[in-house]
Amino acid sequence: MTSTQRTASLAIPGGRFLIVGGASLVGSTTADLLLAQGAAEVVILDNFSFGARETIAHLEGNPRVRIETADITRLPQLLRAIRNVDGVIHLAAMMTISMDRDPEVGLEVNIDGVRNVIAACCANGVKKLVFASSNAVYGYGPGVAGELVETTPFHSAGAPPAAVLYGASKIIGEQLCRDAFRRYGLDYVILRYSTVYGERQHYRAANALYIIETHDRLKQGLAPRVLGDGSETKHFVYVGDVARANALALAAPASDVAVNLSGPAPVTTLELVNLVAEVAGIPIAPEHVAPEPGKVRLTTGGAFRIAHEEAERVIGWKPEVTMREGIRRLIAWREGSKALAAE
């Protein structure tokens, strides 16, 4: 029997699920979806060092939602929080910008934290773990080109240390999942996210900054900035599509697999900046600038595509929201939030 033939599916209606790092862009959207699909309980676990109470404010008071303040580097806290749940979605991680600022804490969270989550899942008899990995497992620089599939190796030449550490930590997290499957029979699905964007967007993702910093400058009447000639390829995936993938990974019979999540098509930085200006209705031409010294920048070696066909085969997922529509929703949310704050 192959791993994709294992019976590892969970029914969302009536199920109990815990989202580690749930007070986040992806976590809050996934919680909304699981509740809409009939989950009996959704536990949101966060230490609120990066997650924000405002992100999950609309869920407070919901009788099917439990909010747990806990730290994934503290195993006893996880052991208590993960009791009586069927499935766990592990989202909590230090991203590249945070890894640049504090690599020691970043490695503790991204490696020891994953190990603790797995240990708590095994101790509490959790039926399935969904682990949020990243396309950073393929690396950065000249080696990243062409079609990136689930077996593409890691490239690190020329990448900043924080980016390499982040990508390597995700590789280790994936291998910890594989080890737990072999040792203890913990079913899991790894989802390798592209850069996630959408409503409740934050400023911590290096690539997502292209979107929100561009919008910020346009609103200030300033020309948006494009690094170099703007030909670098970026891959984004809309947060609603990611939430749907998380739910499908729980419900699918697949286990012991890793699949890519990416949007319908790649985009260059110049195309992205122009698209944000067009959707925002602020036609200010971009200015081409050199990279800021000391600022973390994730470079690519040329045109590439992150293939997501395996995700459709394994969990029945493919992206539905185009970049234009996703940016339209993000800008509408940002402007709506500001309008409400001004009232």
Rank of each mutant, 00 (worst) to 15 (best):
V296Y: 10
V296L: 13
V296D: 06
V296E: 09
R297P: 01
R297I: 10
L298G: 01
L298S: 00
L298F: 02
T299M: 14
T299P: 00
T299F: 13
T299Q: 06
T300H: 04
T300K: 01
T300M: 13
T300W: 10
T300C: 08
G301Y: 15
G301T: 15
G301W: 15
G302W: 14
G302P: 06
G302F: 10
A303P: 01
A303R: 07
A303N: 05
F304S: 01
F304P: 00
R305S: 05
R305Q: 04
R305G: 01
R305H: 07
R305T: 07
R305E: 05
R305W: 10
I306Q: 08
A307W: 11
H308S: 09
H308Y: 14
E309I: 03
E309Q: 12
E309D: 12
E310M: 15
A311Y: 13
A311Q: 13
E312R: 07
E312A: 02
E312S: 02
E312C: 03
R313M: 13
R313D: 09
R313H: 08
V314Q: 05
V314N: 06
V314W: 06
I315P: 04
I315A: 10
I315R: 02
G316C: 09
G316A: 09
G316I: 04
G316Q: 06
W317Y: 11
W317D: 01
K318C: 11
K318H: 09
K318A: 13
P319Y: 06
P319N: 03
P319I: 05
E320H: 12
E320V: 13
E320M: 15
V321I: 15
V321L: 15
V321S: 03
V321T: 11
T322Y: 12
T322W: 12
T322K: 10
R324V: 11
R324A: 13
R324M: 14
R324E: 15
E325P: 01
E325T: 10
E325Y: 13
E325Q: 15
G326S: 11
G326E: 10
I327N: 01
I327G: 00
I327D: 02
I327E: 05
R328Q: 11
R328D: 07
R328I: 08
R328E: 12
R328A: 08
R329T: 01
R329N: 04
R329W: 05
R329V: 00
R329F: 04
L330V: 06
L330W: 15
L330R: 03
L330M: 15
A332Y: 05
A332H: 07
A332L: 12
W333N: 01
W333M: 13
W333I: 12
W333R: 03
E335S: 09
E335V: 14
E335W: 14
E335D: 15
E335Q: 14
G336V: 02
G336Y: 08
G336F: 07
S337N: 14
S337T: 09
S337L: 12
S337V: 07
K338Q: 12
A339W: 10
A339Q: 11
A339S: 08
A339G: 06
A339D: 05
L340K: 05
L340N: 04
L340M: 15
L340T: 01
L340V: 03
